[in-house]
Amino acid sequence: MHHAEHVMGTVVSIDLADDLPAPVLRAMIGDVCSWLHEVDRRFSTYRDDSEVSRLRRREIDVSDCSADLRHVLEACADLWRETDGYFDAYAAGPLDPSGYVKGWSVEVASARLAEAGSVNHCLNAGGDIRARGLSAKGEPWRVGIRHPWEPDKLSWVLAVTDRAVATSGIYERGDHVFNPRTREPAHGLRSVTVVGPDLALTDAYATAALAMGEAGLAWLAKLTPEGYESAAVTDDGRAFTSSGLPTAA
């Protein structure tokens, strides 16, 4: 069963490949959509009444925030330390945890599906992907990574199961990732893709590496022993991949 939901400023595609009754699958999709809209209401920086916006205006204190928002703030602080400051929820000025929230919310959505009995599904939130089990064809889920200059072409096609895939690049939204050291738009890398077991971290790592520029290539290599593979394209068109990147045959 397939469903597309407009939420969090993007389209989230939900594909369930489980052999379950249609009403059960529809209920699962409804739960996922409800969760994602809840996240949007709570974390959107574009909604004046969201928790994040109220916290930014200092109308509420951290101690007044929901458990989910406190978790996100703690996770962003941990990532700031882990990435030597390159993942920074304050990189552009005011608090903006969006670089963590989207991947985290989809990871939670996938966990909710698994808990409800869906062992074969794929969620795609604007390129942030969480796949479990196998597709309806009984094969690993295939994920195309867009060419950073030619939108009708792919740089890589990945075959994944029980993995998350996140890509951060400057080819669609322009200069939206900043180097927190210089406060200038990141440069050096055109596109970074990370594959790993957790989408919240996978997404954050891709963003941090892009912010680092070419130094991010060596930093990504250090993540391989932790189960995170990567691919990147530099501003001048060179392509790099880790040895274990799950490319499709």
Rank of each mutant, 00 (worst) to 15 (best):
L20I: 11
L69P: 01
D49M: 01
R130S: 04
E82C: 02
D64R: 13
I145N: 02
L113M: 11
S44W: 03
L134K: 02
M28F: 14
D49W: 00
Y90D: 05
V108G: 07
H121I: 06
E115C: 10
L95T: 04
A111K: 12
L95N: 04
R70S: 03
G138S: 09
D19W: 02
L95I: 05
D68G: 01
H71Y: 12
R26M: 12
D84A: 12
A136I: 12
C76M: 08
S53F: 04
A89P: 10
K102R: 13
D40P: 09
R41T: 11
N124C: 04
R47Q: 08
V101K: 09
V106Y: 05
F87G: 00
R56C: 00
F43R: 06
I129V: 11
C65V: 03
A136F: 03
L79P: 06
E51F: 04
L20A: 14
S44K: 06
T83V: 05
V119L: 15
G144L: 00
C65Y: 05
L69Q: 04
S135H: 08
R56E: 00
R56G: 00
L69R: 01
W104D: 14
L25Y: 06
S53R: 02
C33S: 15
S50A: 03
G103H: 08
G127F: 07
R130M: 13
G85M: 01
L79I: 07
L25K: 05
R130D: 06
G127L: 08
L73F: 02
G99M: 11
C33Y: 03
C33A: 15
A125H: 04
R58F: 12
L134F: 01
A91Q: 12
D64F: 13
S63V: 13
P94E: 10
A109W: 10
F43G: 07
V106G: 05
F43M: 13
D31M: 14
E82M: 08
S118K: 09
